Amino acid sequence: MQQIPVNLSGYKLMVTEEPAMKTRTVDGRDEFVTDQNGVTMFVVGLFAKQRPAAGQKAPKGEEIKVTLTADPGEGFEDGTYVELIDATVTPYSFKNDKGETVSGIAFKATGLKPLG
């Protein structure tokens, strides 16, 4: 199953790495990542921390990387609280060059919305 919708309304999301064009290294050189239509993808680092239930302490948070399908624009500096627009996760699993299996989930969204 690809692109599973995810509801992150129970989490506070804070920018830890400002949005930038997504790159990958191919044959020792960096290149920009685009979708199948040639549109440049962006990536943002977020710290996700669950909002605590009444009378409870919030669990530890986690830093996540989110691929954005469009330029989010200005105003998303380090420390800005945001909401993801149309957030999804996609599970992946592959064998790397060392023969090890690498598995996880990849976060993706169509954009960012500042909070407050």
Rank of each mutant, 00 (worst) to 15 (best):
P59G: 00
R29F: 10
Q2E: 11
T88D: 03
K113V: 04
N96G: 13
E74Y: 08
E18A: 15
L84S: 06
K108F: 02
L84V: 10
T25W: 04
V44R: 09
E77K: 15
T16F: 07
V6H: 02
N96H: 10
M21Y: 04
G104C: 10
N96W: 13
V82R: 02
L84F: 02
D30N: 13
T80D: 05
L112H: 03
E17C: 10
E18R: 14
T69H: 00
V102T: 03
I64Y: 01
G75A: 13
D97R: 11
T69I: 00
P91S: 12
V15W: 07
V82P: 08
T80C: 05
N37L: 09
V39E: 03
S103A: 14
P52I: 00
Y92E: 07
Y92A: 02
A54H: 12
F32K: 08
V6E: 06
K113Y: 02
T16M: 12
V102Q: 13
E18Y: 15
L112W: 01
A87Y: 01
D97M: 05
G99C: 04
E100C: 00
G55P: 14
F94I: 04
G79R: 05
M21I: 10
K22I: 03
T23N: 12
V15I: 14
D97E: 13
F47E: 13
D71R: 06
P19H: 04
